[in-house]
């Protein structure tokens, strides 16, 4: 078994691959290898002895015990291994599988690093594959949509500026019924704790903000939340391979605090 035996349809991947040629793939692969991959990738690619120890660290491999193609070493072989062997000259159909594997069969948890006797970071290798995918415009639809949202709103769920503040004030109101005098202090300069969340909280799980406020209130701590974009500490652009936008998000969050 291998990735080409389990392809799934995704609007984003299909759209991206439809615009590729082997030449375009080769150009981008060579560019990333030359300017971004460096000695680290070369060392990893030359020192993996295929011992398979990494398999025990990977939840994808553990949940497919009869299919070694899910092991980290095999997933590297099917993605970066192919790109290195061919110098990046692969056909778009092959690249579809490479992208699908990189985005859906490794979530960059890096647990395998701790099982590898020589510390090969498969998560890093997969992030470089995703970087190439991003550069080629081959990303799954819904993760790319969250990256678009991040670039626009600085949060992953298209939460608009006013919706964020309104949600905090709504949860503050709700919590005051249970805890009179509770506050969610906004933009309090010099507060000891800057509390940030991820966008699914205001979008779908507002009670989590209520509950955090209840804890801070009971603990009597000096805390605040920002009213401005920068409040979302997640970063889907890091996962799509859009490292330029990743830097923009990190800066915004850091400077918000």
């Amino acid at each position: 078994m291998g990735i080409q035996d389990r392809l799934i349809e995704d609007v984003g991947l299909r759209r991206g691959v439809s615009r590729l040629t082997p030449e375009k793939i080769e150009t981008v692969v060579r560019s990333v290898m030359a300017s971004e991959a460096g000695a680290r990738l070369k060392a990893y690619s030359e020192t993996c002895m295929r011992c398979g120890m990494c398999a025990k660290g990977c939840h994808f491999a553990l949940s497919h015990p009869d299919d070694p193609s899910y092991t980290p070493a095999a997933k590297v072989a099917q993605t970066m291994g192919v790109l290195l062997k061919t110098g990046g000259r692969v056909d778009p159909g092959t690249f579809y599988g490479i992208a699908q594997l990189a985005y859906t069969e490794c979530n960059l948890c890096k647990r395998c690093v701790h099982y590898c006797p020589i510390g090969i970071d498969t998560g890093f290798i997969m992030s470089m594959v995703r970087r190439i995918c991003h550069k080629l415009g081959v990303t799954p639809q819904y993760i790319q949509d969250t990256a678009h949202s991040h670039s626009t709103t600085f949060n992953q769920m298209w939460v608009k500026d006013d919706e964020w503040i309104d949600t905090l004030q709504w949860q503050e109101d709700e919590a005051r019924d249970e805890f009179p005098g509770l506050r969610i202090p906004l933009d309090k300069e010099g507060a000891e704790i800057y509390y940030s969340v991820i966008a699914p909280e205001p979008k779908f799980r507002t009670q989590l903000i209520y509950q955090a406020a209840a804890i801070f209130n009971a603990a009597g701590v000096d805390w605040t939340m920002p009213s401005q974009p920068g409040w979302d500490n997640s970063d889907m652009c890091m996962f799509t391979g859009d490292f330029e936008m990743m830097g923009r998000l990190k800066r915004r969050h850091f400077e918000s605090a």
Binding site: V11, G12, R15, Q141, Y142, Q144, D145, H148, T152
Partner: peptide
């Protein structure tokens, strides 16, 4: 400003530029 509405997860419309 956003000059046109976007359908959910419409990658083409976003990348065409609506800001």
């Amino acid at each position: 400003v956003q000059t046109a509405s976007l359908k959910p997860a419409d990658l083409d419309a976003f990348q065409a530029g609506v800001f």
